[in-house]
Amino acid sequence: MVSSSLLKQFQRATQALLGLVTINVIFFIFAPTYRAISNFQTIFSQATVLGVMAVGTTVVLLSAGLDLSVGSILTFVAVSVGSMLNLQYPVWLIVFIALGIGAFWGTVNGLIIVITGVSPLIVTLGMMMILRGFSELLGAGKDMSSFPRAFRALGSGYFIPVLIMAAAYLVVAFMLGKTRLGFNAYAIGGNQEVARLSGIRVNKCKVIYYAIGGLMAGLAAVLLTARLNFANSTFGQGMEMNSIAAVVIGGTSMSGGIGGVGRTIIGVLIMTCLASGLSHMGVGSSWQRVSIGIVIILAVWIDTAQRKRTL
């Protein structure tokens, strides 16, 4: 059942798939080092961090929300994890706490948005600032590297990270495709007032979606710190943009109500291949940043063009 709904999303995301194939063909031709098998292993393991984060962002965007603070949530969780690992806690507990912290900040975002009625853009932008401050405070002057091997295993290679990401995708795909919570996300994103008048507890649902977004950012932080074997307070800056870009390129509408995680994974691969390919072609990180901005604008353009056609 889950797989069939996933398959449908794949079909609808053929355009994104086409984009993915196109850029790969281009890089295959023009960047010889890109072709190596080892490079694809790297791409996969890199894609897991963004991938996990983007799952959460998909849920938030589907319900017509926006969370710009996920990058900073990642930073904060990474720094927290870094400080905890030196305390010799067991790995499972650390992962659990990391997810909890991520979900906590997501919940805080959701609660503020729901209770105050301030636009998510401003709330999460403010939260971004707040969390950066907290991360600096927490991470200042601490050595956060050389983590225990058991923890590093979560992020090393590509098998375990890809497995974790796949699990995240399956859970969220099930949530969106088979549960009331997921159905409500589409309804709220499509027309909040109709959802409210249909007896859906819009506010409660929204808080949960932001919490999921935060939780996934926490999980992404675990994967990233485990892979790099260190953590600091500049981690994850700008990740929120990559995450939004991946989701929108995949074909989830920024205005909510249309999309799903099946498409997001294609978006994530496009983003990762693009970054890898550009660096293999010798394009510096600053121009990569420019290209991400342009890609987002293009994705938004495609999004609005498609919406015009279907509505």
């Binding site: 589409y186 309804a187 994103g189 499509g190 027309n191 007032e193 109709v194 959802a195 008048l197 509408s253 909510g256 109500g257 249309i258 509505l311």
Partner: peptide
């Protein structure tokens, strides 16, 4: 009076 459906689903 006004239509009250979610158009995207």
């Amino acid at each position: 009076q006004e239509l009250n459906l979610v158009p995207q689903i």
